[in-house]
């Protein structure tokens, strides 16, 4: 049975449907809960979505069911929904949704768009990434703790170059480290930088780090995925829910928290669900705010090698 209602979102009426439908069976977390989470996190989340084309990862039948990536903003979208046309590598164009406002966010959440994946650039300048991302992806039996160890080494290397960087959990098994740039730069430069850095880390700690993509190389190691620094790639957005068994959130964490988890060999302090995340941001604010503001120039890596 379809049950449709309307929400009044600051004067704009947004239809919502099937609110009691359970999307995370393990936790009994419903579509209504998903929409509620996105409404409550909106003040912190929207600045990070603003102007960025978004790929929606939709789970119409919940996290155990069928899912799909929706790049093209659905044609049944409301008139007030912002979009951005972006050229594809095959010459065509994709018209992405751009979630600039609270009604847009509620509308997307109602599509069971559990995960929001965004580009490193904004629609206004598609060849200019605003940050570098290192996606640390553990190959079992490596885990979140292994990622912490690698992240700390990566931070030491970036520190040595005078670059500030900010970590967040992927909300699943990994970590992502962002280096804010917010200055004119191209993907060619950021990708080359990230690639060199990943190779350097692998040379320093070959037992811990792998910088090549092949899955069979990854076992027991952490892939430092530099290839996400690409105009065609998206990464899960900060504060996005993840379609894990229990709902988790891609959460900004402090370097202190990562060092502590690494020291105590316990990573559960780095895992946040919607409720604990909302309490956390209410207390400490948006740890990822500097990623949008901090201007840093990309240094040359010629002759640089990461500290041991």
């Amino acid at each position: 049975m379809k049950t449709v209602a309307e929400l009044d979102v600051g004067g704009i009426r947004v239809p919502v449907s099937n609110l009691p439908k359970v999307l995370y069976p393990e936790a009994g977390f419903t579509k209504g809960d998903v929409i509620n989470y996105y409404i409550r996190i909106a003040p912190f989340l929207l600045p990070h979505l603003k102007g960025r084309p978004v790929t929606m990862k939709r789970y119409p039948d919940g996290v155990k069911g069928f899912f799909f990536y929706e790049r093209n903003c659905p044609s049944h979208r409301p008139r007030w929904m912002d979009t951005a046309k972006v050229g594809r590598s095959d010459g065509g164009q994709t018209e992405y949704c751009v979630i600039n406002t609270l009604p847009a966010l509620v509308w997307a959440a109602n599509l069971a768009d559990l995960e929001l994946h965004t580009f490193l650039h904004r629609a206004a300048a598609v060849h200019r990434p605003t940050a570098i991302v290192f996606d640390l992806d553990p190959g079992p039996p490596a885990d979140l703790l292994s990622c912490c160890a690698v992240a700390l080494r990566l931070k030491a290397a970036l520190d040595a170059l005078g670059l500030e960087c900010f970590p967040k959990t992927s909300g699943s098994k990994g970590l992502q480290v962002y280096v804010p740039l917010n200055v004119p730069v191209t993907y060619d430069l950021t990708k080359a930088f990230a690639h060199q850095m990943a190779d350097g880390l692998q040379r320093r700690t070959p037992g811990l780090v792998v910088s090549r993509m092949e899955k069979n190389l990854r076992s027991g190691k952490v892939l430092v995925d530099w290839s996400q620094n690409d105009g065609h790639k998206t990464t899960v957005n900060v504060y996005s829910l993840r379609a894990t068994e229990n709902p988790t959130v891609s959460t900004p964490v402090t370097w202190g928290e990562i060092a502590k988890a690494h020291r105590l060999k316990r990573s559960d302090s780095l895992v946040f669900g919607p409720e604990s995340l909302l309490k956390r941001v209410d207390k400490i604010g948006d740890l990822f705010a500097p990623v949008l503001k901090l201007r840093q120039k990309l240094p040359s890596l010629d002759g640089f090698s990461p500290p041991a």
């Binding site: 049975m1 209602a5 929400l7 009691p20 929409i35």
Partner: peptide, 23 residues
């Protein structure tokens, strides 16, 4: 059935309350 449909109205109210607080 996970929840009786009559509760849907309440859910909308919950969301509307969240929206008010967010604003």
């Amino acid at each position: 059935r996970s929840r009786p449909p009559s509760k849907v109205i309440d859910l909308v109210a919950v969301l509307q309350e969240s929206l008010k607080q967010s604003k």
